[in-house]
Amino acid sequence: QTVLTMSNWVPPAHPIVKYIMVPWANDVAKVTNGRVRIQMLPKPVARPNQHYDAVINGQVDVAWSTYGYQPERFQPYLIAELPQLGDTAVDNGVALWRTHKTHIEKAGVHKDVHLLGVMTHGPGLMHHSKKFILKPSDLQGQKIRVGGDVPRAIVQTFGGVVITQPAPKSFEVLSAGIADGIMFPTESLKSFKIASIVKYSTFVKGGLYSSSFWFAVNKNKFAGLSKADQDAIMKVSGEKFARLAGAGWDRADKEGVVAIKEAGGQIKPMSAEFVAELNKLTEKLELEYGAKMDAMGIDGKGTIKFFRAEVARVAAGK
């Protein structure tokens, strides 16, 4: 029996562990007839942005983390952060995996690990403590806590004030009024216990942004498994993992919506006027992303086109 240690930098009750990693670990045990067992460490081995190196260097065998925490290193995979993509985490996550396979993999970003899968969280919304952000002018002068370049671009474009504080400080930042609002998928309102503070949520079709995650195993450790076990593990990983993870995130988002309702919050769509302005921004962000990809030898425009087409295909059940 081979034991693979796994590090999670979120608490054991977090949806990523509960709905994604534990089920995946059970799948692995099942398909390998118990020959490979995943052991969750009681504490994370390193900071979130250090997990990738921790896998490369063998501090831990299996781990996952957020691409956006290392924006230059993982630039191609930040495609999933763009606004107005898919409506669910399944759509975006599966599309990201397929895009990885067809367009990005050859760039060799993940050459030092064995990539088990990728995932994205559900569509990001705008949550405010005092009012709905419906029109573009509603964001003027509002202090919004963001992480990552896409949410920041949105807040800045519409005249908001960007508050940069670490995500775990969200409760403190919002309850103290350091920020008036925050951009998150609905899941995070439950995870960070902020549903009772930000009661005015607004969304656009396809989300304002999303975050993407890698999920990988140490290369030597994986190579040390028998061919049969490797194949069995990959059968429950890759696109299968993107679906499993997407379903986990979508389930967590639904619970987030329940938490919002229970806290007396409401969710409204943003106005057509806002969407029209956002379209322009999305176009600009796509150009920027495309240019960076072109510089890396990846067809930027084609990649985005492919991603959007796959989102539609997955949504259509393919």
């Binding site: 081995v45 390193a46 900071r47 250090q50 190196d53 921790a54 260097n57 063998g58 501090q59 670490p166």
Partner: peptide, 22 residues
């Protein structure tokens, strides 16, 4: 438990991360 290479990596990562922990 995890090998020399992993141990040294752990040392450097922890030192650096604690040094710049907000």
């Amino acid at each position: 438990t995890r090998g020399m290479h992993a141990a040294f990596d752990q040392l450097a990562q922890t030192t650096f991360a604690a040094g710049i922990d907000y």
